[in-house]
Write a protein that binds this DNA or RNA. Structure first.
Length: 646
RNA sequence: GCCGACGUAGCUCAGGGGUAGAGCACUUCCUUGGUAAGGAAGAGGCCACGGGUUCAAAUCCCGUCGUUGGCUCCA
C-alpha cells in the first residue's frame, strides 16, 4: 500500500483505497456518479463532516444523503444559512442569533432592529432563498482565530455572535461562507446551495436570546426546505392532515370534550361521547390489570398537607401547586392531590406486610391536579386536572426485573390493542459522573438499572438509553409512540422509586424475619387518559377502534313509518352491548347517512319497508359504503368479529 | 410565568367610529323520502369582560380573562 493512500471502510464493510486527502465526495465518486450527486455530507469516524473536507487518515466513512437523519439535519442547517443570507439581503443590518436544524426543518433567531418585519410577506423571503439557491454557492469552511472572529462580528455589529464567540476556545472557531453571507458555525454543511429546491417559512414566533426571558426577544423564523418541490408539497399536505386531525378540532366536532372559562382553564369537561370513550378505555385497562394481578383502590382527591410534606413533594412543588385549602374551624390544610402515590403508600402501610404479600400492585384511575403554567396548557395534552391510569407496585428489590417484564407485556398489549405499533422505549439511567444527587443505594440502583436493561432486551424492545435522565428517586423506562402521521408522543412510563418507601418508612418482613424496605414502581401505560385520548384521536383521525368508539352504530329509518322497527332493532343491538342511537329526525335518508358519515359512526343500519318486512337491516360502513342486507343476527355476528380486541 | 397574535350567534367566519351579517346547527310548518345536504318560515348576539378617548365605541387606547404560536417549566 502506498504511503500516500488511506483506507476507507464503508458501512457495508468494504474497503476502498484512496489518495490521502480525499474527501467524502471523492469516496462517493469512486462508487458512482449518482451517489456523488446526492451526497450531502460524510460521517467520518462517527463525526459528520463536510463532504469536501479532506480525510487524512484511514477512516470509517458513511456517505450521508437525504435519506439519513444526519444528512437531513446537515441539509436543514445549511438551509438556515441560506435563509439568513436571504434575510440579510432583504433586511440589511439585521443581527443573527442561532440557526439550528430541528426535527423537521430549521429556524433562525433574528433581531430585525429597526426593520418593520411583516409576516404577510414571507413568500418574498422564500423566493429570495430559492433565487440564491440557484446560484449553487459553495459552503466554504475556514478556520479563524478568535481575534479575527471577534473583529469580524464587531465590525458587523452583531452582539449575539460575539456572545457566542466569547464562549468558544481560540483555535476551535470556524466560519462558513456561501455567496455573500458569512456565519460563525462549526458546520458541517452540504456542498452547495443548489441542493435546496423548495423552501417554506412555516411559523414566526418570539424567542428570547439563549432562552432567558431577561434577554432581548428575537424573532424566530421556523422554516423547512426540500431537495424536490414535490416533497415540500407532500410535507405541507401532511401538515394540513395534522390540522384536520387536531384533537381540539375533532374533540369539538365529535363532541368529546369542552372547556369553560367559568370552570377554569386547563380543566377539561368530558361530554357524554368523550366520557364514553374514556370509560371504555378505563374499563378495558381495568380488566387487563385485574388479570395481571393488580388490586384496584380508591383514594380521595385531596390529602392532608403533611402527606406531601412526608412525600417531599410539598417542599419541591408546594410553591408551584394549587395552594392548600383549609378547614373552616380547625384551619387544617389539605392539598389537591398532584399524584396518587402518597395515598397508596398509606394503604400499604395500613397493615403489616410480609414478603409473601409482595409484589403488591395497587391501581387507581386517580384524578390529579397540577398547577401547570398558563402558557403551557394545550387542549387535552396539557391540563391542570387529569386522570392517571396509575398503579404502584411494591416489591422486593430482586423482583424489579420480573415486574418490569410484566408491565412491559401490559404496555405492549395495550398499545397493540389501540393500533400503536411503532414505538421506542427510552431507558433513563442515572448520571454515572454524579451519583450523589440520587437517592437510594448504589447496590439497588445497579440492580434496578440492570433489571430494566435486561427486561427490555428480553422483550426485544427498540430502545434508546439516556444517561443522567433518571429521576432523582430512580431509573425509568418511557414509551414514545409514533402516530399515523409519524409524530412522536411520550405516553407510558415505568419508574423505579427508592425515595417514597424511605420517606413513608414502608416495610415488609422478609423470610429472615427481619424488616426490609420494599421498592416501589410507578407505572402508567397511558400516562394520562386526557393526553392519551388526544393522541389516539389524532392517531386515528377521530375514527376510533370499533370497540372503543362512543357510538358504534346509527340506526337510520327511511321514514317515521319505520320508527317501531327501528326501535326493535335498537333494543336487540342493546341486548348485544352494541352502542348507538336512532336518527328519528324528519330528514331524508341521504341526509341521515351524510350526518352519520361526518359523525364518523362506524356502522349505519338503514331500515325501511323491505327490512321491516323481512326482519333485516341494510348495513353501511363508514367510509366504505353499502354492505348489503343482513338479518339482525348476521349483522351482530359481523359486528362482533369487527369489534373484537377490547 | 414571559413575548406576539387572536376573541363577533351553538359552530365556521365576514364586517368595522353612526348602536350587527352569512352559511351550517336550532325551532315550527310542509314533505314520508332508499345509500353523503328536500323546501319554507322563525328564533338566536352586552360583538369576551372592565375602564378610557369621543357627540357617538363591537370598531380606537389601556387593563383583565380566555384561546393560540413560541420561550421557560413538567412530580
Amino acid at each position: 500500500m502506498s504511503e500516500s493512500n488511506i483506507k476507507v471502510t464503508l458501512p457495508d464493510g468494504s474497503v476502498k483505497e484512496l489518495p490521502k486527502g480525499s474527501s467524502g465526495m471523492d469516496v462517493a465518486l469512486s462508487i458512482s456518479e449518482g451517489l456523488a450527486r446526492n451526497v450531502l455530507a460524510a460521517e467520518v469516524n462517527g463525526e459528520v463532516w463536510d463532504a469536501s473536507r479532506a480525510i487524512d487518515t484511514d477512516a470509517e466513512v458513511k456517505l450521508l444523503t437525504w435519506n439519513d437523519a444526519d444528512g437531513k439535519s446537515t441539509y436543514w442547517h445549511s438551509s438556515a444559512h441560506l435563509m439568513a443570507e436571504a434575510l440579510e439581503a432583504l433586511y440589511p443590518g439585521i443581527k443573527l442569533g442561532i440557526g439550528p436544524a430541528i426535527d423537521a426543518g430549521f429556524y433562525y433567531d433574528i433581531d430585525f432592529g429597526d426593520h418593520d418585519f411583516d409576516t404577510e410577506n414571507l413568500d418574498i423571503i422564500e423566493k429570495k432563498m430559492l433565487e440564491l439557491a440557484k446560484q449553487k454557492n459553495v459552503y466554504e469552511r475556514s478556520e479563524v482565530s478568535k481575534a479575527d472572529a471577534i473583529k469580524y462580528f464587531t465590525e458587523k455589529g452583531d452582539e449575539y455572535k460575539l456572545d457566542l464567540i466569547d464562549r468558544l476556545e481560540d483555535g476551535d472557531i470556524t466560519f462558513y461562507k456561501q455567496g455573500e453571507f458569512t456565519d460563525l458555525c462549526k458546520g458541517p454543511h452540504i456542498p452547495h446551495t443548489g441542493f435546496i429546491k423548495a423552501a417554506k417559512i412555516l411559523n414566526v414566533a418570539g424567542a428570547y436570546w439563549k432562552g432567558d426571558e431577561n434577554n432581548k426577544q428575537l424573532t424566530r423564523l421556523y422554516a423547512i426546505t426540500f431537495p424536490k418541490a414535490k416533497e415540500l408539497k407532500e410535507y405541507l399536505e401532511l401538515l394540513e392532515e395534522a390540522k384536520k386531525r387536531d384533537h381540539r378540532k375533532l374533540g369539538k366536532e365529535l363532541e368529546l370534550f369542552t372547556f369553560s372559562e367559568k370552570v377554569g382553564h386547563g380543566l377539561p369537561l368530558w361530554m357524554p361521547k368523550g366520557a364514553m370513550l374514556k370509560d371504555r378505555l378505563e374499563t378495558f385497562l381495568k380488566k387487563v390489570q385485574l388479570k395481571a394481578g393488580y388490586k384496584p383502590v380508591v383514594t380521595p382527591h385531596i390529602g392532608h398537607k403533611d402527606l406531601y410534606v412526608t412525600s417531599g413533594h410539598y417542599e419541591k412543588y408546594g410553591e408551584d401547586s394549587f395552594q392548600p385549602i383549609s378547614t373552616p374551624h380547625e384551619g387544617e390544610e389539605f392539598i389537591l392531590k398532584p399524584m396518587n402515590c402518597p395515598h397508596h403508600c398509606e394503604i400499604y402501610n395500613s397493615t403489616p406486610k410480609s414478603y409473601k404479600d409482595l409484589p403488591l400492585r395497587l391501581t387507581e384511575f386517580g384524578t390529579v391536579y397540577r398547577y401547570e403554567q398558563s402558557g403551557e396548557l394545550h387542549g387535552l395534552t396539557r391540563v391542570r386536572g387529569f386522570t392517571q391510569d396509575d398503579a404502584h407496585i411494591f416489591c422486593m428489590p430482586e423482583q424489579v426485573k420480573d415486574e418490569f417484564l410484566k408491565v412491559i407485556d401490559l404496555v405492549l398489549y395495550v398499545f397493540g390493542a389501540l393500533g400503536f405499533d411503532d414505538f421506542t422505549a427510552q431507558i433513563s439511567l442515572r448520571d454515572p459522573e454524579n451519583t450523589q444527587k440520587y437517592i437510594g443505594t448504589d447496590e439497588n440502583w445497579a440492580k434496578a438499572e440492570k433489571a430494566i436493561i435486561e427486561a427490555t432486551e428480553e422483550k426485544g424492545l427498540n430502545t434508546v438509553t439516556e444517561l443522567g435522565e433518571a429521576a432523582f428517586y430512580g431509573p425509568k423506562l418511557d414509551f414514545m409512540v409514533k402516530d399515523a402521521l409519524g409524530r412522536s408522543w411520550q405516553l407510558g412510563t415505568i419508574q423505579v422509586d427508592y425515595n417514597l418507601p424511605e420517606r413513608f418508612e414502608l416495610e415488609y418482613t422478609g423470610s429472615d424475619n427481619q424488616k426490609h424496605r420494599p421498592v416501589m414502581i410507578h407505572r402508567a401505560p397511558f400516562g394520562s387518559l386526557e393526553r392519551f385520548v388526544a393522541v389516539l384521536t389524532e392517531h386515528c383521525g377521530g375514527n376510533f377502534p370499533l370497540w372503543l368508539t362512543p357510538d358504534q352504530i346509527a340506526i337510520l329509518p327511511i321514514s317515521e313509518k319505520y320508527a317501531d322497527y327501528a326501535n326493535e332493532v335498537y333494543a336487540k343491538m342493546e341486548d348485544y352491548d352494541i352502542r348507538g342511537f336512532i336518527d328519528h329526525r324528519d330528514e331524508k335518508i341521504g341526509r341521515k347517512i351524510r350526518d352519520a358519515e361526518t359523525g364518523k359512526i362506524p356502522y349505519m343500519l338503514i331500515v325501511g319497508e323491505k327490512e321491516a318486512a323481512e326482519g333485516k337491516v341494510s348495513a353501511r360502513k363508514h367510509g366504505e359504503g353499502d354492505l348489503g342486507s343482513f338479518t339482525q343476527d348476521e349483522f351482530i355476528k359481523l359486528f362482533k368479529e369487527a369489534a373484537s380486541v377490547g
